[in-house]
């Protein structure tokens, strides 16, 4: 007794178009288009007497500067290096945590994960600020160190690269733990029993079974930390020293202090070029993960 669906398919089609078009147009306009403008400005000329301080041109001045002045290559390399080291430290802290949570009694997973994410919901800026108080000359860390009597006159970590590693690690730890947990949690534990049954000691079973199977989680977590860390500005600005060069800070200074829009844009474009490979990698991995989930569900 079904009535013929007259409006149905047509309405569905329009609904579908709307659902796709609304976010698509928004993202094209406010996310994709700006990059075209950044590209255009990066080849413009700087003119300090106009507002905005650029005149359209077809100039390679800004890019030439990036390669001539040793400051810029150094800043790029430094950013990649610092981000890589910080990512590695985050992995070393995050993996045992994720592993311990994934192997905890079932009822504990939720609260333990919540406790990892909870700091993320408080302010990022304020969490970085907390480290200033801890790492400064008379900060908590040095008070504790003096209290133990082991170190008489510890220097301040604030202003060193170590402070930046700590800051990145602290701010991004949840992004490392969550994908690792997801990979470790869905692992079939009978695989480990099978490995033990075939003669593998626990450590060997971890290396040959658990670790390889958690590689997607490791990759996902590392990319989620590494990519934003390369362009990080607040952490090196607040915790790092004046001599620590990171490219996010260089971009910021070019833009706000020197008002050199073309150079700032060129710095951004080159950073994008450096990050495009890891970003595409990240996006591929995510798409694969999701289609796999859907395949399993359907």
């Amino acid at each position: 007794m079904n009535l013929p669906l007259r409006i149905g398919p047509q309405g569905q089609l329009w609904g579908r178009r709307l659902v796709i078009a609304l976010p698509y147009v928004w993202l094209l306009l406010f996310f994709a288009a700006p990059f075209a403008i950044v590209a255009a400005i990066s080849i413009s000329e700087t003119t300090l007497d106009t507002v905005p301080p650029v005149t359209p041109a077809l100039s390679s001045t800004a890019y030439a500067l990036l390669f001539e002045d040793a400051l810029y290559p150094a800043a790029y390399l430094n950013s990649v290096r610092i981000a890589a080291i910080a990512t590695a430290i985050t992995l070393l802290i995050g993996y045992p945590m994720a592993y311990a949570i994934a192997r905890a009694p079932a009822g504990w997973h939720g609260p333990l994960l919540m406790a990892v994410i909870l700091p993320f919901w408080t302010s990022f800026l304020i969490r970085i600020y907390a480290w200033i108080g801890i790492l400064s000359e008379n900060g908590l860390l040095n008070q504790v160190l003096r209290g133990t009597g082991l170190v008489e006159n510890p220097g301040s970590l604030l202003g060193t690269e170590w402070a930046i590693y700590l800051g990145i690690c602290y701010a991004y730890l949840p992004f490392m733990v969550l994908p690792l947990y997801a990979a470790l949690e869905k692992m079939d534990l009978s695989l480990l029993e099978a490995a033990a049954d075939l003669g593998a000691r626990p450590w060997r079973a971890f290396l040959t079974i658990t670790l390889p199977l958690s590689v997607p989680g490791i990759l996902g977590g590392c990319l989620l930390v590494f990519i934003p860390a390369v362009g990080e500005f607040v952490i090196p600005d607040l915790l790092g020293g004046t001599e620590t060069l990171m490219i996010g800070k260089v971009l910021w200074d070019e833009f706000f202090l020197n008002s050199d829009w073309p150079v700032a844009s060129a710095v951004a474009m080159l950073m994008l070029v450096i990050l495009v490979v890891p970003i595409v990698f990240f996006q591929r991995a995510r798409a694969r993960e999701l289609t796999k989930d859907q395949g399993a569900a359907g």
């Binding site: 079939d188 009978s190 490995a195 049954d197 079973a205 079974i209 199977l213």
Partner: peptide, 19 residues
């Protein structure tokens, strides 16, 4: 421990290493 026993098991889920 299991890894030192002279027995082997065929698991219900087979537990084949997917990688």
């Amino acid at each position: 421990p299991p890894y030192a026993r002279p027995v082997n098991m065929m698991f219900q889920s087979y537990a084949l290493f997917p990688h």
